[in-house]
Design a protein around this nucleic acid. Structure first.
Lengths: 254, 254
DNA sequence: CGTGGCTTTGAATTACATCAAACCTTGTGG
DNA sequence: CCACAAGGTTTGATGTAATTCAAAGCCACG
């Protein structure tokens, strides 16, 4: 309330918003899709998949490119096929809260009539499937399984959102970072037990805006974890979980 | 991480958990229900309502009584008919985050297989309709409208959850309290324009745990609002919004 | 008309933010 | 292939909003 908004913005580089995402032709084969089993497409069997395939288009985004902005009319829903996306909301003075990171198999575009409730931007290079609402929703009548699946997805997101509220409202910086690293590991399934090496594609500033902290606090907390032997950080985008149990104890609040 | 957990708990009085909520007979008439139009029941017409009425039971809770706890097997879903309920999550050391307040017409019980994702407790005396999942879900096949309505509800909750993440992660104490008062007003539609008098049934400690603050900070911020002529607080559970526009400006971050 | 639980108010403390500057990377053009 | 911007990240010094500790009001209820 007292702090300087302009400074908040200066922390973050303005990312380019390209005129239009690259939109390709229909995917060759939904049946061969590598994330099919984890997406909402899994609601349909191989035969039914045709109705989906008929309306899907492939979209590619470069890092930093915006897919849609909060308030935009919600014309499409998407499936992440590859890459990482961040969802965020802004305050008028530029303060930002990232409400989620999306990975391959994740769904986005759930929205009410007021348009998208958050903006979506590519963290890495991204491939998505795009479905026009106008053509997808009619399928719900024929395949109620689809809507059932969407309800399941929304339910899971709601659960995650509640966990994140607990984190934002009640956890310390260390607890927040530990929780984040562990949920990243859970999400993308790190390789190399018993010291899994995590890829952390997002910037420190993204992590900060996800955890309700500043870049500096995130960096310092990483430093402290390193000094405690909890993690290794060979480079800024790689984290080795050296003592997972220690992290778990911290994440859950002692 | 450094602070004393025992103290955090002492702020909050342990509320009694009665052996069992009072469960009544089936409601006389769903068709005459005062919140029917705003609940998920609105998905069904008067005729179809019979299938719902056949499985519903009325439940009453005294203030402070627990409806269910996080992790409990999710056997039922509920509709709030009267009163106010709070949903919350706890950290092991007692820190609490309230994830939502529910008012008449609100739905609760959306949950995945791991059971309820939060606890639910009565703030005031509460009346609810209780539906056993086991008997409700079969109706989804016959009335896909029901599941469609649930998806709409989940979507709205998701949007609210994202707003709350922005609040918890990025807003100041004053911005949080102003946002809270305005959303309360929106939700329960205060009487008496142009200085609507709001009923705030929850305790300061509940408000604090909803906004990610301490009781003291909430109380002090109320005091500051009073001194600025933004609100009147005739008693702790009544707030008069004296300068709504001023509050709105604060809520959105200047 | 006490007594226990909220709420408010005050003083001291602190976790995290802010301000500032050095230090890396990574990509680019000479 | 190297120099050098330009971000992004780390580290240090200082400031502060909100918490913690403490105690006094204020109801509300038995």
């Amino acid at each position: 309330m007292t702090s300087d908004p302009s400074r908040r913005l200066s922390q973050r580089t303005e990312t380019p918003r390209y005129a239009e995402p690259r939109v390709g032709a229909a995917i060759p084969m939904c049946a061969a899709c590598e994330v099919r089993e984890v997406t909402f497409c899994s609601a349909l069997n191989e035969h039914e998949l045709a109705s989906i395939q008929a309306i899907v288009r492939q979209v590619r985004l470069a890092p930093g490119q915006t897919l849609f902005q909060e308030g935009d009319e919600a014309e499409n829903v998407f499936n992440v096929v590859g890459g990482v996306i961040k969802l965020y909301k802004l305050l008028r003075d530029g303060r930002r809260q990232i409400t989620g990171f999306l990975f391959p198999g994740d769904f986005l575009g759930i929205a009410s009539r007021d348009g998208y409730s958050h903006s979506a931007e590519a963290v890495t290079a991204v491939r998505l499937c795009r479905f026009p609402r106008r053509r997808l929703e009619p399928l719900f009548d024929r395949y109620p399984k689809l809507e059932h699946r969407l309800l399941g997805i929304a339910t899971d997101e709601l659960t995650a959102a509640q966990d994140q509220m607990l984190l934002l409202g009640r956890k310390t910086a260390a607890e927040k970072l530990a929780s984040f690293l562990l949920s990243l590991e859970r999400r993308i399934g790190a390789a190399g037990e018993p010291a899994p090496s995590l890829s952390v594609p997002m910037s420190r500033s993204d992590v900060a805006d996800y955890l309700g902290l500043t870049v500096e606090t995130v960096s310092r907390t990483f430093g402290r974890f390193r000094k405690l032997g909890l993690v290794d950080v060979p480079d800024a985008h790689t984290v080795v979980l050296r003592r997972r149990q220690g992290l778990e104890r911290i994440a859950d609040g002692d």
